[in-house]
Write a protein that binds this DNA or RNA. Structure first.
Length: 487
RNA sequence: GCGGAAGUAGCUCACCUGGUAGAGCGACAGCUUCCCAAGCUGUAGGUAGCGGGUUCGAGUCCCGUCUUCCGCUCCA
């Protein structure tokens, strides 16, 4: 793992040095677990998103996309379970460094008291806890723990930190006038999915969508992380590409398996070998799921989750229906072969595929990054090359006059004019040709064409391939076609 | 959160036991060059993370602080 970690660090350095990814607000010492995409990183990321969108939306007649706002009505997060499940006061034991939810800790003590026959004591304890929790009285909660001599089960001591609130969600104030009032508080979405659920009927009706159908979305989400490390793998502000697939109740198992297989096919289609992937089935399921798994990729830091496939049941739509008092149901006219009657009215079940954009970027980078030793007997030589699939490369084509005189730049410029409207090109006339090739390797440009004196005679150039470093002579008017075919 | 290490030019690093900062690469300008980095000339770039202390004098010693990396913990 030690060398793998070096590889991981090398990739991070390379990303910064070659304009892919910078730490956020670096001139102010950075902002924890937030990163900015630079000139080439943003191109790479955009290409990945475009590819996903194309394969999920464009290639499926029954899937459409939306772009919901990041701000949502606060009740959304009550309905989704995010408020209740992820904003509990926590406390750490200083000796064992074990972290507990305060309510769990106290409830366990109450259970214990009850078992010992101290029914009354137990009830008093729980009642006090409820009062303090309702009042957000953290000092009081700590005192309660200490007074009742509640020990950590690992260290068996009562040496506790202060009670702190763990907030999964970022909150902000809605409205220009600042106020202490709670009702002005709204959250930055911690997942994009809810924007799809609250628009379920809008899309279904206006798009005349028939079950089974999907709604896709690419967008930012925000979560406070307990530990924030590992580069862009775990960020506070991140981007998701997800699709919620609405289905008949009872068919969830079959669709879950379908999307598991489909999504893995997509991953293998990136040119990444199968042994770099594995499924990881969730044993402990989130509050909304009846089956869930991750697709994990073998990063330099080990196998880690890139994508999640969840069978979310009707949890979300059912809760939104309850909280909003609006019917979120689908009328299914199709005939059920089992009964000979229409399926009728129901809240659809949902299978979700959710892939992290930033994690995919990191996966593509990890897969592409290669340090090569090109030494011969005469001379030591090496290069760093990013072997991106051509469709993801930030720059598709570099156009290089061999020397910057004798009319060569002029010819190169006409090639530039011809190609720049079709894909990202880069023109460069500085330095020796070898140096320019290597610079392009470092940012993963798949093709370089070089204009030389022969170009003036017969309108040909040499095209040089990034991965093999081989060159061949091609007519100038074929360049565009060759690159377009590859991307 | 705890423990360890490190923070000097864009990058990698040097300055040994305190005396007012240097190299290579890179960048830029030019020369040379007819196909794979490290040929020649020139230029720019650092108040040594930040704050304080000791000292005649600190990058170099001491304290604090911030950031990063490694390990443990945590991971909804």
């Amino acid at each position: 793992m030690a060398t793998d970690n070096n590889r991981f660090q090398a990739i991070i350095s390379h990303c910064k040095e070659y304009g892919f990814i910078f730490p956020s607000s670096e001139i102010y010492d950075g902002l924890g677990a937030v990163y900015d995409y630079g000139q080439w990183g943003s191109e790479l990321k955009k290409n990945i998103k475009d590819h996903w969108w194309k394969s999920m939306v464009q290639m499926h007649e029954n899937i459409v996309g939306i772009d919901a706002a990041i701000f949502m009505h606060p009740t959304t997060w009550k309905a989704s379970g995010h408020v209740d499940n992820f904003s509990d006061p926590m406390i750490d034991n200083k000796d064992s460094n074990k972290r507990y939810r305060v309510d769990h800790l106290i409830e366990a003590k109450a259970d214990e008291l009850e078992k010992e026959g101290q029914q009354e004591q137990s009830e008093i304890l729980l009642k006090e806890m409820d009062t303090l929790l309702a009042a957000n009285d953290f000092d009081g909660l700590k005192t309660l723990i200490e007074n009742n001599k509640i020990n950590c089960s690992v260290s068996n001591t009562c040496n506790w930190t202060d009670v702190r609130q763990f907030n999964l969600m970022f909150s902000t104030e809605f409205g220009a006038v600042s106020s202490e009032e709670e009702e002005n508080k709204i959250y930055l979405r911690p997942e994009t999915a809810q924007g799809i659920f609250v628009n379920f009927l809008n899309v279904q009706k206006t798009g005349r969508m028939k079950i089974p159908f999907g709604i896709a979305q690419i967008g930012k989400a925000f979560r406070n992380e307990i530990v924030a490390r590992q580069f862009i793998f775990r960020m506070r502000e991140f981007e998701q590409m997800e699709m919620q697939f609405f289905i008949r109740p009872g068919t969830q198992k079959q669709w879950y398996e379908h999307w598991k297989a489909e999504r893995m096919k997509w991953h293998l289609g990136l040119g990444i070998p199968a042994e770099k992937y594995r499924f990881h089935d969730h044993v402990k399921l989130a509050h909304y799921a009846d089956a869930a798994c991750d697709i994990e990729y073998d990063f330099p830091i080990g196998f880690k989750e890139v994508e999640g496939i969840h069978s979310r049941t009707d949890f979300d739509l059912k809760n939104h229906q309850e909280y909003s008092k609006k019917k979120l149901q689908y009328f299914d006219n199709d005939i059920d072969p089992a009964t000979g009657k229409p399926f009728g009215n129901y809240i659809p079940y949902v299978v979700e595929t959710s892939i992290g954009v930033d994690r995919t970027v990191m996966m593509i980078l990890s897969e592409a990054y290669e340090e090569q030793d090109l030494s011969t007997d005469e001379k030591k030589d090496s290069r760093v090359v990013l072997k991106f699939p051509a469709r993801f490369a930030p720059i598709k084509l570099a156009i290089l006059p061999l020397v910057k005189k004798d009319g060569l730049p002029e010819i190169a410029r006409t090639i530039m004019e011809d190609c720049m409207g079709h894909f990202r090109c880069f023109y460069e006339e500085k330095d020796t040709i070898g140096k320019r090739y290597r610079r392009m390797d470092a940012i993963g440009t798949p093709f370089c064409v070089t204009v030389d004196h022969q170009s003036k005679e017969d309108n040909t150039v040499t095209i040089r391939y990034r991965d093999t470093m081989l060159q061949e002579r091609i007519p100038i008017d074929k360049i565009r076609e060759i690159v377009l075919k590859a991307i």
